[in-house]
Design a protein around this nucleic acid. Structure first.
Length: 588
RNA sequence: GCCCCGUUCGUCUAGUGGCCCAGGACACCGCCCUCUCAAGGCGGAGAUCAGCGGUUCGAAUCCGCUACGGGGUACCA
């Protein structure tokens, strides 16, 4: 379908070229010489022809063959059935007939749009990982960016796969990330209940309607027969789909059902072709002959996803279905259901899946972390949101470190990539560190509480500025702050005195520092630092090298929080023994 | 088997026929800044835009084929 349209467009362009046989000026060809790379002006000056311009942008679904007038200028407005377009890249005169391009306005964003109502519909089969919750994030972003509503619905129509406790985890994950829902479990809403197992009567009612209109029929075929049929179809290189045996024997099926034979309700897929414009992928088309007569009602009376999701999306007035791309092959079946019921279908946007490092689809089994694990590892929800948003979506201005409200302000589905992406944890780390650095100190101090259980509120507050600049995850605070909140054992494996510092200088430095601290030097650590720097420089040593002595002495390692701040935090009483202990490890 | 979706530096991406012998970010390397570590600044290395054909004066961008990857093909969602 797509191809044939494009082919037709190409054909009409050829005709246009033939129909406008003006003399080609050789001068026009000499744009910039052939020696160098021909440099064409991006937006050339206005040009005119004896014949009208033709609007040609077939690939973008643009209506070709439209006259633009005998002269045009880049930037001119041009109205065509697709909306207001802008001319750009006007071509040299010798080629105008087919190359006067127009840039279509964004197709997916009509100027006036009702606020979107979107939904996230997980099934309670386990904890949410990055792959599944990113779909929730995109839904939430679409809702918030369009002043719409974000609806949460639990799809638990498969009783067998239900995992105890996963609903609670789902709600907790969403809340932790800040993806608050406007309607759904716990918050309620006008279309309650938002749990499918509580809506079974609704689905049965719709199913009856479908039977009455002939869009669905009962089927009593056994699993064995179905398996045989599929094997045969596969062997015959045929698409595998139900052969409609029961469609041709309704009385018999009715008798069997009355006699207690288990039966399922099948959707009768109409003839023809189904296509839709996916907000992320553009036109997608299926030949209905490829489609199976989908089971709508299982023999246990529960609906399948296909029925339940269409019914609920309609009843809940969902305008945009944003879901993972594994649903693409089912979409034509859903569309057929909407048509059979006389309902207007929503827009569809199929987002790509998230892959793990080995390029396989992310899954719990392969060690994908659940969202809550990231919390327990010391990640900030805003950083996770940032990292997930950048997985498949990019900001129009290229900004990458973004708070949720900034993402909302910039979000649109047409900037979502169609290809699957690998989740990069290193990038998450980077983003997490940067977001930690943007936190107000009081907030950081609060967030640090679980990671610094031994510290008082006051201590955490004074530690916060020292830690903020150098932690990647909140959990890093525990090790970084350890030397300040407890004793430090002397570690013989740490080089002491450090490189570039001889024992005598180290001893003098420690003595001088201890003397100064004893004399109240911690009152003004800048002065103390300058005093010691001067002393080291007198001996021809750089402060950076010499101070390593103090790092090892006070923090037990050559790196850590700024050592003078550390000493001040510890106070003279705690600092002096450390300086003296280090001194004792040096020959006197 | 049949159908669908996808394919730009290691990773995430920009890119919608000339601003691209492809730009940014993470990771990596070097330098600078600096009391260490971070953060930051500057620079480096890293992509024959999956391949091949076609259209075009000109293709990462349009078309076709192929390859590879993923998904669907359930009384799972």
């Amino acid at each position: 379908m797509v191809e044939s349209r494009a082919r037709a467009a190409t054909a009409s362009l050829r005709v246009a070229a033939v129909a406008l046989p003006w003399g080609v000026s050789p001068d026009a060809l000499e744009v910039a010489g052939r020696s160098a790379r021909p440099v064409m002006p991006r937006i050339p000056a206005a040009v005119s022809t004896r014949e009208p311009f033709t609007c040609s942008s077939p690939a973008k679904g643009h209506q070709p063959g439209r006259e633009l007038g005998a002269s045009c200028r880049a930037g001119d407005a041009h109205s065509c059935p697709r909306g207001l377009l802008q001319l750009w890249n006007v071509r040299p005169a010798w080629k105008l007939a087919r190359t006067c391009n127009v840039r279509p306005a964004r197709l997916s964003e009509p100027p006036v749009r009702a606020p979107p109502r979107v939904r996230f519909a997980p099934s309670p089969t386990g904890a949410l990982h990055v792959g599944s919750i990113r779909t929730a994030l995109f839904n939430w972003l679409l809702a918030r960016s369009g002043a719409g509503a974000f609806i949460l619905r639990i799809e638990d129509t498969d009783q067998g796969r239900h995992v105890e406790g996963s609903e609670v985890q789902i709600l907790e994950s969403l809340r932790w990330l800040g993806l608050e829902w406007d309607e759904g479990p716990e918050v309620g809403g006008p279309h309650a209940p938002y749990v499918q197992s509580l809506r079974v009567e609704t689905y049965r009612g719709v199913a009856e309607e479908l039977v009455a209109s002939g869009a669905a029929y009962w089927c009593t075929c056994t699993a064995e027969r179905l398996a045989q049929m599929r094997a045969a179809q596969r062997a015959a290189h045929q698409p595998s789909r139900y052969d409609r045996r029961c469609l041709g024997r309704p009385e018999e099926v009715a008798r069997e059902r009355a006699g207690g034979t288990p039966a399922v309700l099948r959707q009768r897929i109409p003839e023809g072709r189904t296509e839709w414009v996916d907000a992320i992928r553009g036109p997608v088309a299926f030949d209905n002959a490829e489609l199976d007569d989908q089971v709508l009602l299982k023999s246990d009376g529960f609906p399948t996803y296909h029925l339940a999701n269409v019914v609920d999306d309609h009843l809940m007035e969902i305008t945009d279905v944003v879901r993972a791309d594994e649903w693409i092959p089912s979409t034509p079946k859903h569309l057929a259901l909407y048509a059979a019921l006389g309902w207007a279908p929503p827009r569809f946007a199929h987002v790509p899946v998230v892959l793990s490092e080995d390029r396989q689809k992310l899954s719990k089994r392969r060690g994908a972390r659940s969202v809550l694990e990231y919390r327990d590892l010391g990640y900030l929800p805003v950083a996770l949101v940032n990292a997930m948003a950048l997985l498949g979506w990019s900001s129009p201005d290229g900004e990458e470190v973004l708070a949720p409200d900034q993402i909302v302000a910039r979000f649109s589905l047409d900037r979502v990539q169609p290809s699957p992406a690998v989740f990069d944890e290193q990038r998450l780390d980077k983003l997490n560190g940067l977001h930690i650095r943007m936190l107000p100190l009081t907030r950081l101090a609060e967030l640090l509480a679980p990671w610094l259980p031994a510290a008082s509120d006051e201590q955490r507050l004074s530690l916060a500025p020292l830690l903020q600049e150098r932690i990647t995850r909140l959990s890093d605070a525990t090790t970084l702050a350890a030397p300040l909140l407890g004793e430090v054992a002397w570690d013989e494996t740490v080089e002491f005195p450090p490189r570039k510092v001889d024992a005598a200088t180290a001893a003098d430095l420690l003595d001088a520092c201890a003397a100064a601290v004893e004399a109240g030097g911690l009152e003004d650590i800048t002065a103390l630092r300058e005093q010691l720097t001067a002393m080291l420089e007198q001996r021809g040593l750089k402060a950076r090298d010499g101070f390593r002595v103090l790092y090892v002495a006070v923090l037990g390692a050559p790196a850590g929080v700024p050592v003078f701040d550390a000493m001040r935090f510890l106070g003279a009483e705690a600092t002096l023994p450390r300086l003296r202990r280090a001194r004792a490890h040096l020959p006197s």
